[in-house]
C-alpha cells in the first residue's frame, strides 16, 4: 500500500533556515544541510526547500545547498521559491533536486507548467498554491495569492488546481495562507476540496501544531502527504513520534 508521506519543510533565506508566521517575522533556526541530514536519519520521507528570499543571490546559495544535501541525503528533494523559467528549473534539477515547486511564476505564466513538464517530466513539476479563504455566499472559497502571500490574484484556488494539473503538474503543494505558522491545524476543508478535485497527489501545508493536525490532514483532508516545519525544527515532535502516532491510528506510513 502506498504510504502517506511526512515532509519537513525548510524555509531558506541567504543559506539559513528561518521560520515565520503568515510568511512574516522571520527567525533564524539553523543550517539547511545539517537539518536535512538530521531529518534523513530520522526517517523523513522527503524534504522540501523553499527559498523565501527568492533573490538571484539566494538562488545561487540554494544551488550550493542542494548540491551539498544531495551528496548525503537519499530521499526526494523538492526545491522552490523564485524559480521563473525552465532554465531556473534545470539548474535546480542538475544540482540534485528531484522536483521543483513553482508558484508565482506559474500563475503569471501558466505555460511554464506545460513547458517544464514536457522538458523534465510531470514528476519534476510541483505547483505550489498559496490559498486564502474568502467569504462567499455559496460556502467556503479560496483565492490564490502570489509573491509570498503579498498579492491576491482573484483566481479561485480550485479552478487553478485543476488547470495546473491539466497543464502537466505532477503534484500540488497546497498552503493555507490563513493557517500558515499559526499551529492551529491545517485548513481541512481546503485540503479536502482540492484533494478530491485533482488526480495528482496533494501535499497539505500550513498550520501543523501537533500530531493530531497531521492525522486530520491525511484522514479528513484526504491529503497524500503533510508538510510541516516548526513542529519538527523545534523538536516538539520527532518524525518517529509522528509516524508512530499515525500508524496507531491506521494511517499507512513508512517506518
Amino acid at each position: 500500500m502506498l504510504t502517506k508521506r511526512i515532509i519537513p519543510c525548510l524555509d531558506v533565506t541567504q543559506g539559513r533556515v528561518v521560520k515565520g508566521t503568515s510568511f512574516m517575522d522571520l527567525r533564524d533556526v539553523g543550517d539547511p544541510v545539517e537539518f536535512a541530514a538530521f531529518y534523513y536519519k530520522e526517517g523523513a520521507d522527503e524534504l522540501v526547500f523553499l527559498d523565501i528570499g527568492a533573490t538571484p543571490e539566494g538562488r545561487s546559495t540554494m544551488v550550493d545547498v542542494v548540491e551539498r544535501v544531495s551528496k548525503q541525503v537519499f530521499i526526494p528533494l523538492t526545491v522552490g521559491g523564485g524559480l521563473r523559467n525552465t532554465h531556473d528549473i534545470r539548474r535546480m534539477l542538475e544540482a540534485g533536486a528531484d522536483k521543483t515547486a513553482i508558484n508565482t511564476a506559474a500563475v503569471l505564466n501558466p505555460q511554464l507548467i506545460g513547458n517544464g513538464a514536457k522538458k523534465f517530466g510531470s514528476q519534476c513539476i510541483v505547483v505550489a498554491i498559496d490559498a486564502k479563504r474568502v467569504i462567499s455566499a455559496d460556502g467556503p472559497k479560496w483565492e490564490v495569492c502570489t509573491h509570498g502571500g503579498r498579492k491576491q490574484t482573484g483566481i479561485d484556488a480550485t479552478t487553478w488546481a485543476k488547470q495546473a494539473v491539466a497543464l502537466g503538474a505532477g503534484e500540488l503543494l497546497l498552503t493555507s495562507w490563513d493557517a500558515d505558522g499559526h499551529r492551529t491545524g491545517y485548513d481541512l476543508e481546503l485540503t479536502r476540496t482540492i484533494s478530491e478535485t485533482v488526480t495528482v497527489p496533494v501535499i497539505a501545508s500550513g498550520g501543523a501544531g501537533n500530531l493530531k493536525h497531521l492525522y486530520q490532514a491525511l484522514a479528513d483532508g484526504k491529503a497524500d502527504a503533510v508538510l510541516a516545519a516548526s513542529i519538527f525544527h523545534y523538536q516538539t515532535y520527532s518524525i518517529h513520534q509522528a509516524k508512530d502516532y499515525l500508524a496507531e491510528r491506521g494511517v499507512p506510513v513508512r517506518k
Partner: peptide
C-alpha cells in the same frame, strides 16, 4: 482508479 502518478513510498 488510483492517483497518477504513483508517487511515494510503497512496499
Amino acid at each position: 482508479e488510483v492517483k497518477i502518478p504513483h508517487m511515494g513510498w510503497n512496499q
